[in-house]
Design a protein around this nucleic acid. Structure first.
Lengths: 175, 175
DNA sequence: GTCAAGTATCTCAACGTTGAGAGATTCTGA
DNA sequence: TCAGAATCTCTCAACGTTGAGATACTTGAC
């Protein structure tokens, strides 16, 4: 009869934690350090795994992020630059840069904001709309593939834990 | 009698997922997309939370990462550049850059590798050793503080899920 | 021994982000 | 109504990473 292993398989962070325990046995909170380290490494691996999919369509992750944010807001696929930067968690300089590149590619256009002349509206062009709707399908397929090593139950448990973490950090909306 | 809420509190990713469901009801794997999004946002928030601690000591995260890697290997606190870049998950150019900066600050030194003249050994100086041992204490305290909104049980469950994910991605050692 | 293949590090240009600051516009309260 | 505070976007220099290529050295097969 198959038995669940008593001992979980170790990952790279277990190695790191063991090294710290040996070198600094007085150091507390190693569990916190390990958890943060796991989030960081998982993010790193996920990003590396996504990059080739976007590259297939001539996009960087940062560019896809903008297009996807506009797409999922629904028609008329418009958002201010400020809305985009808060959603993407980057600074204003980064958004200006991303919009410049996407505008040059003809995937978005900047239109005046009616009612606030400080602001602009960023709008998906037809080309941008078509592209992002294609890319997002390949993208989610790829994400699902990267997570396929976990059971549905494991994924759900992980998801719940991460949601609680985000809520506890105050990350409850996009603005 | 206090009751656990039936409904989990929502985070920013719940908002994103709801937008996609509305705009693209045909899109599958939204659970995978949400999980990846949560890892990304959690990482982003953690990084932002760590930055000020390192800044207090005149360090960037990337620099601390190198010093900490050397420190936790134990005496004589040496590693090759290749070992460092694999541990840090960055490219060779990035490591050269980090080592240049740390060398300029007097926190590490490059010494010839005995037995392989292609390689170098990167060694913590006394100044580097003292600094990293101080900073790491403030750093883990800070990490623990950022995670304090979760119960011990929640943190353990999250940690287990992330370890399984990393193992499933093949991230079982440092190089 | 010799040569091809592999490995270790560094170089360098392209790229993207940060963060401070400027300019323009809108909001707020007296 | 008006001045000061706040907000929105853009500019720009500093910084860090990537990724391809160069250089030097080592290894393995013959």
């Amino acid at each position: 009869m198959p038995q669940k292993p008593q001992q979980e398989a170790g990952d790279a962070v277990d190695v790191v934690a063991a090294q710290w325990r040996r070198e600094r046995p007085d150091l507390g909170h190693l569990d916190a350090m390990a958890l943060v380290g796991r989030i960081s490494r998982a993010n790193n691996l996920m990003q590396k795994g996504m990059k080739p999919v976007f590259a297939q369509y001539g996009l960087e992750f940062a560019e896809f992020d903008v297009l996807a944010t506009l797409c999922r807001t629904g028609a008329p696929y418009e958002l201010t630059a400020g809305g985009l930067l808060r959603s993407a968690m980057v600074t204003s300089g980064a958004i200006t840069n991303r919009l410049d590149r996407l505008e040059k590619k003809g995937l978005i256009e900047r239109v005046p904001h009616p009612g606030d002349r400080r602001a602009i509206k960023v709008r998906l062009t037809t080309e941008g709309y078509d592209l992002v709707n294609t890319v997002v399908e390949a993208h989610v397929e790829n994400e699902a593939r990267m997570l396929a090593g976990l059971t549905k139950t494991e994924r759900a448990a992980l998801d719940t834990g991460l949601r609680r973490l985000l809520v506890s950090l105050g990350d409850t909306d996009l603005g």
